Amino acid sequence: MFAERTGYIVWFSDWKAARGLDKYGTLHYLSRKMQYAVMYMNADVAEETVRNLQRLSFVRKIERSYRNEIKTEYEKNVPDKTRFYGL
């Protein structure tokens, strides 16, 4: 149904050139002050796309985002203490 997506943080040196990163994937955020971009792309073509991004002269470094690997399902193992704090 939905393609598996992966996120990358791209550190750049030229703000105007970095606005053209949307050709390589979905550009989620651009930071002008810290000079990085957050972008998402399909996981099946991500490796090839990263190689193409590294060839660009304004790209300094590319880091993979580990957001999809973080556990987001939590368990509640502590007892409910709301009855002790009643009025």
Results as ranks from 00 to 15, higher is better:
55 R>H: 07
78 V>A: 15
19 R>T: 10
36 Y>H: 13
38 V>A: 13
52 N>A: 13
8 Y>P: 01
55 R>W: 06
55 R>V: 04
79 P>H: 10
48 E>C: 06
41 M>N: 03
65 S>F: 02
27 L>W: 00
26 T>W: 11
24 Y>V: 10
74 Y>Q: 14
7 G>F: 09
11 W>H: 14
71 K>I: 06
72 T>I: 12
19 R>F: 06
10 V>Q: 00
37 A>I: 01
77 N>W: 10
18 A>C: 08
75 E>Q: 13
17 A>P: 03
56 L>F: 00
63 E>D: 06
33 K>I: 05
21 L>T: 02
18 A>I: 07
20 G>M: 07
73 E>P: 05
3 A>I: 12
74 Y>W: 15
42 N>T: 15
45 V>H: 10
26 T>D: 12
11 W>K: 14
73 E>M: 13
60 R>L: 02
58 F>R: 03
84 F>T: 09
8 Y>S: 03
29 Y>A: 09
4 E>W: 07
21 L>F: 00
48 E>W: 06
72 T>A: 08
44 D>N: 12
85 Y>P: 03
72 T>M: 10
84 F>N: 12
19 R>L: 09
77 N>F: 07
44 D>H: 12
2 F>D: 15
15 W>K: 11
57 S>F: 12
76 K>P: 03
66 Y>G: 12
30 L>C: 06
67 R>N: 11
77 N>G: 07
47 E>T: 09
17 A>V: 06
56 L>E: 00
1 M>V: 11
21 L>Q: 01
